[in-house]
């Protein structure tokens, strides 16, 4: 299964949820916001949201800025 993660194609062996994706990337869910196909997925639904082939996933964080 392929998804586009922050603009780059990534291949996964099987379907996975947003939570599983973040776990694989070692990103704490509390520090990011996620969009799937430009729709925000609320944090409470990370475990229940299964990513599908071709999905565009954005994992966004806060960083220093003015």
């Amino acid at each position: 299964m392929k998804i586009v993660l922050n603009g780059d194609q990534k291949e996964f062996n099987s379907e996975l949820t947003i939570q599983q994706l973040l776990d694989q990337l070692q990103i704490p869910a509390g520090r990011v916001a996620c969009e799937v196909n430009l729709r925000i997925v609320k944090r409470a639904f990370y475990g229940a949201t299964i990513l599908k082939d071709g999905d565009a996933v954005e994992v966004i964080q806060a960083i220093g800025g003015g």
Partner: peptide, 8 residues
């Protein structure tokens, strides 16, 4: 603060 993609 700014909002940006996580640099993977």
């Amino acid at each position: 603060i700014a909002i940006r993609r996580v640099d993977l």
